[in-house]
Design a protein around this nucleic acid. Structure first.
Length: 384
DNA sequence: TCTGGGGTCCTAGGACCC
DNA sequence: TCTGGGGTCCTAGGACCC
């Protein structure tokens, strides 16, 4: 039997499902989450009134869509104004991250009660190392993996009970790469297991984009080379892939197509950077709107300073990010001699960075970033 | 009226040091 | 008195993910 068994657990349409717990009368209806925060449901004498996609104007994208909404072709990442053309009467709810974070803690705690070796992959996803459970529950009969599937089912049940009824999909496989793909095979509320011998039958027919780490650019390059499916990628000469994609990515593509992945489940990690950014309602001009921009920059620095304080970090690198009309993005970094954490120091650093940018177009986004994080208590020590 | 906000990791060139 | 090579840090951009 395999020495490692990894589960990938993915909450089904997470944000939308959390909202449906709050507004159960929307169950089964097309609903999307996204946009600004000014279209929350209103309580009227006639009952609750919801915003519809057709009522929305301005910038914003869909963060999550219910399965009923996906039937209209709306999906996360799609602009709200475009989505309105596909599904004008679809209900639109604003995002409520505090609610999703609270629910995230609940589902992760429910998993940890059964299997504590958890790697956090964001608000709605985790990897779980179930190797020990698989060994302990190894069946003697015709299905040695029955015990592993039982554990996964217990995790699903515990998550449902702890969240008030939310479903998730779990993929089981010998490594993270395959577990992630396995969890996609049977959504929503799925449970699927991929063994090494299932590779050719179940993984190779999938498009290369199904590999976690092959994005739109790599998929387009591969397609231009006549490679659309993982099976074709697996059949490609590894030396040829290295020639086309570089030593590192080329080798990785070959291994991924063959289902090879040795990455461990990492149960603890420190943040690398913390940032705040905002897209403006309308594009702003560096000169004409300089007061508005100054106000926004100050607010971002205030928020970032609060984030650093809450999480207990200081930073040695202050960075800014600008996005101009046309989506061209520019970043500038400044490394400081000593770590800082206060809003005034962040603002000063950000202003220094801004001096090195050429403003030849209107802006749509401004962001501030703290990189090279150090623990605040160690930073105090260094500062002395 | 295209394209949010929060992240991670990789690459590549230049500075600087030994 | 044409100047190698390695290591590390800094910066900028880009691909990718949730």
């Amino acid at each position: 039997m395999q020495s490692r068994w990894i589960a990938h657990l993915d909450m089904d349409a997470f944000y939308a499902s959390v909202e449906l717990l709050r507004y159960p009368e929307l169950k089964g209806q097309p609903v999307v989450i996204g946009g600004r925060r000014d279209h929350a449901p209103r309580e009227t004498p006639q009952g609750r009134s919801y915003a519809r996609l057709k009522d929305y104007t301005g910038r914003g994208v869909i963060t999550t869509a219910t399965y009923a909404a996906r039937a209209f072709g709306v999906r996360s990442g799609l602009g709200l104004m475009k989505a309105a053309q596909l599904a004008p009467d679809c209900v639109l709810l604003p995002v409520d991250f505090p609610a999703y974070r609270a629910m995230s803690r609940r589902f992760k705690a429910a998993v940890a009660e059964i299997a504590p070796l958890i790697e956090d992959r964001g608000i709605d996803e985790i990897y779980i190392d179930l190797s020990q459970h698989a060994r302990e529950r190894q069946g003697a009969g015709h299905d040695p993996l029955a015990g592993l599937k039982e554990v996964a089912q217990e995790i699903k049940n515990n998550v449902r009970a702890a969240t008030g009824g939310l479903s998730c999909s779990i993929g089981l496989a010998p490594n993270k790469l395959l577990a992630k793909m396995a969890s996609e095979l049977d959504k929503p509320d799925g449970l699927s297991l991929v063994r090494p011998e299932d590779l050719a039958g179940r993984i190779w027919p999938l498009p290369v984009r199904a590999i976690n780490g092959v994005g739109p650019k790599a998929a387009a390059s591969l397609e231009a080379l006549g490679i659309e499916h993982i099976g074709e990628l697996a059949a490609a000469d590894p030396a040829w892939l290295v020639e086309r994609f570089g030593a590192s990515y080329g080798r990785w593509l070959h291994q991924a197509a063959h289902g090879q992945d040795e990455r461990p489940v990492v149960t603890h990690s420190e943040p690398v950077s913390i940032s705040r950014e905002t897209t403006f309602e309308r594009d702003l001009d560096a000169r004409r709107d300089r007061h508005e921009l100054g106000r926004i920059l100050t607010e971002l620095c205030d928020q970032l300073a609060a984030d650093l304080a809450r999480k207990g970090y200081a930073t040695r690198t202050v960075g800014i990010k600008l996005r101009f009309e046309g989506f061209r993005t520019v970043t500038r970094d400044l490394t400081l001699a000593e770590p800082v954490h206060g809003a005034a120091a962040l603002l000063h650093g950000a202003r220094e960075c801004l001096k090195r940018v050429q403003f030849d177009a209107r802006m749509r986004l401004l962001g501030v970033r703290a990189g090279k994080l150090v623990h605040a208590n160690e930073a105090n020590h260094e500062a002395r």
